[in-house]
Design a binder for these strands. Structure first.
Lengths: 271, 271
DNA sequence: CGCGCCGTTGAAAGTATTCAACAAGAGTGG
DNA sequence: CCACTCTTGTTGAATACTTTCAACGGCGCG
């Protein structure tokens, strides 16, 4: 492990690429950076908020616009020929929705609000105009391409995360990704509310609902977090990260139930 | 099955999007269409062939160019902090290599030839020039964006394929994808040679080597194919598809060993 | 208030991995 | 060209992990 590079936690830095990847926290797409968000905001317009369960677009619908999530969250569901539904992505604030429809011009999956959600619409005309200008100025490596490339990279990391990893690593990674996202949005990374059901999480991570439930219970026993319905409080972030990175000593089922370290609640609001 | 896109069996058609997805065969990226290939050939130049095991670029290297595979095959390996290697993609002829490096400007994984392989280089200057022209003509939905979007979509399908599916479905899908690719390249879809080891396949599909080996043996017992080392002969394409689509009657381990249907070798050269 | 969905828990079953041993092939050097 | 060695592939047995099935409590919504 060559050491010439310092590992940034979740993402290679442009100036100094991470030579090896940390999988934890790769469970969700990264939001746009502040600069990108500004860029896109300039060419987007807000549309009326979606209510819970309302769809932004349905599978098979023609691509009209791309969207950026402002607040709230959505899930994207691909339905296959056996009529099974697969949740392929959760979209949180700052994320671009609809990129996977560009190739065919039709949305490959239904996208649906998990709670009251507001999104901005990027009209195709505005995007074209923007691309034209951008291309003229900077050549092919536009902002938009970078966003797509990042999505591709992250989807690849997701595959690897889900593929060889055990259920506990997957769930820990997912929770960490959420925690990171909440921090980025200025919310507490320790206390948050899941907008998706256990069943959605299980579907997304390729686990049975029962497994998700059991794991949450087990995480709680281990003092990693406190879960009450959809409210999550992270009690031991380091422990959760160790688990997600595969650095955990052993299977969580064999681990004795350790009393939580005294410092774990430091600085946290009691919920 | 029109068409403009040959792989319509696995891909939504622009005129009539498939409302629901068939996962089988989604194990590999689709090659460029004939039109796209022409477009990119115009701005690319051939470089000297890579020998087996030679790398095109290493993880962490700066993105210099994109590449299109002409003949042969490569594997892309991401190495994570625990020093585990994950094969994220096999690149076959017609596929664009390096898209996932655009976001950071550095290659997230090492890409290495599995056999003697020749690739074309798309120089960044040429690509920029091309993008500029394309944007000026058609706006933002350029050829290049479509290629990226397709890659994203396929990576997503890959996740779903690998996530809930059993090992037999995964391997059958992978073999079918290969078969399809060989047909598209004008080779026999029934007889081909795997350029990757069992271990590579297992890594890519998230299975232990032993499992891959056992499954190939079992497929053979079931009369689906004949495997001799890395030479594969598909004996029952429909059966393999049924398996990949999850339409198979039951677990392959419980299925009795059926004598192969009489027509299964029709039109096939004895190898 | 009742119904349906969501979440939890236990027990049984299945599926894939790990470990171990061995066979076969490819590459290397004498 | 052959012997040697290391990698690749195969097979069996034991183990581990996750799912499935089943039952039940709770909550929200009509």
């Amino acid at each position: 492990m060559t050491s010439q590079y310092k590992a940034s936690r979740f993402m290679a830095l442009p100036e100094r690429p991470t030579p090896a990847y940390r999988l934890s926290g790769m469970c969700l797409p990264a939001p746009l950076s502040v600069g990108e968000l500004e860029t896109f905001s300039a060419i987007s317009r807000q549309i009326s908020p979606l209510r819970k369960r309302q769809t932004l677009f349905a599978q098979g619908e023609a691509l009209k616009s791309l969207y950026i999530v402002r607040c709230g969250s959505l899930k994207q569901v691909y339905r296959d020929i056996t009529d099974e539904a697969h949740i392929t992505q959760f979209y949180l604030p700052g994320e671009v929705v609809g990129l996977d429809a560009i190739s065919t011009g039709f949305h490959p999956g239904t996208t649906q609000a998990l709670e009251t959600t507001s999104v901005c619409e990027i009209l195709p005309e505005a995007l074209e105009e923007f691309s034209r200008k951008e291309a003229a100025e900077k050549g092919g490596n536009g902002c938009f391409l970078r966003v797509m490339s990042r999505a591709l990279h992250q989807e690849r990391m997701m595959v690897r995360l889900l593929l060889n990893r055990t259920s506990d690593v997957r769930l820990a990674s997912f929770l960490l990704a959420l925690s990171t996202r909440f921090r980025q949005q200025g919310y507490s990374p320790f206390c948050f509310r899941l907008s998706m059901s256990r069943s959605d999480i299980g579907n997304y991570l390729g686990l049975a609902v029962e497994t998700v439930s059991r794991l949450l219970g087990r995480f709680q026993d281990l003092g990693l977090l406190t879960a009450k319905g959809r409210e999550i409080r992270v009690d031991d972030l380091d422990g959760l990260m160790a688990l997600a990175d595969g650095r955990a000593r052993q299977s969580i089922w064999h681990a004795g139930i350790v009393p939580p370290s005294s410092c774990r609640l430091a600085g946290m609001p009691a919920h």
